[in-house]
Nucleic acid binder design. Structure first.
Lengths: 133, 133
DNA sequence: GCGCCTTTGACAATCATTGTCATTATCGAC
DNA sequence: GTCGATAATGACAATGATTGTCAAAGGCGC
């Protein structure tokens, strides 16, 4: 078992990372690819996908699978947390829920499940969007 | 707020509903389609998809979007609840978490979000699968 | 600098899901 | 029970995100 999957530092990887660092909210792989092109970076779509997967595996970014069908990626704070997403404008707020974490662990444990993880997303309409409609 | 969801009762709809009622766990649309064919029901794949969407909209079934990429459907108890899924054998346990519900509402409210909903899935390895490995 | 080996990227392939549209079946009215 | 409007169906094509492929290029240790 090699814990350190030989990762090399390439321009493309930093470019993707940089874009993620400068943008707010979630973006699809294709979005990010377009942004990179606009910035003049020449990065292949395939590479964007692979880089994002790598970053996601490394825990440096979060992945969300909205009903829309595309994967959305976002750089988030490192620790475990969840998202409160406006279903109208896409605005995202990070929320922490220690109570939820322990609850999930407890419930899973009661059923004998081990190696537990969980996903939680909260959807709603943010104040601005609610006011608009 | 129900603008007449004009739904007709058709053989296909009952067939899909019946299969869902007799199976355990989550199944993909294509799975269900295959099952229906085995039973001798002649149902088009397109119809299976549409029927499932309809049932999901009506709240009669639950949809899950696992990392695998396929949509999985399952008939569940009507009330709001969540799932504890074995990531090895797919076994599913329904769990209720009143505390989580209220927590989500509260957190969303604190940020001014309205019309709140949420999704929560817990993944783990069930006792049997854990023992096997 | 040199060479090995990972990464890259253009393109093709995959595959679940959705759109299309002529045909069929359902439901309410009579 | 019959009729007719109209929603539902289903075979097929289309879509579109994601993944696979493989030759070429670049990073890293030496």
């Amino acid at each position: 078992m090699n814990p350190e999957t030989t990762q090399r530092n390439t321009k493309q990887r930093s470019a993707v990372s940089a874009v993620l660092g400068e943008t707010e909210g979630f973006h699809s792989a294709q979005d990010l690819h377009a942004m990179l092109r606009d910035r003049g970076e020449r990065v292949g779509l395939t590479t964007v996908y692979r880089t994002l997967q790598g970053l996601a595996d490394a825990g440096e970014i979060d992945v969300m699978r909205p009903p829309g069908g595309e994967h959305l990626y976002r750089r988030c704070s490192q620790g475990h947390h969840h998202h409160l997403v406006c279903r109208s404008c896409g605005r995202t707020v990070e929320v922490a829920g220690p109570a939820v974490e322990s609850w999930a662990e407890k419930v899973a444990g009661q059923h004998g499940f081990v190696d537990v993880s969980h996903t939680l997303e909260i959807f709603g309409t943010c104040p601005e969007c609610a006011a608009k409609s």
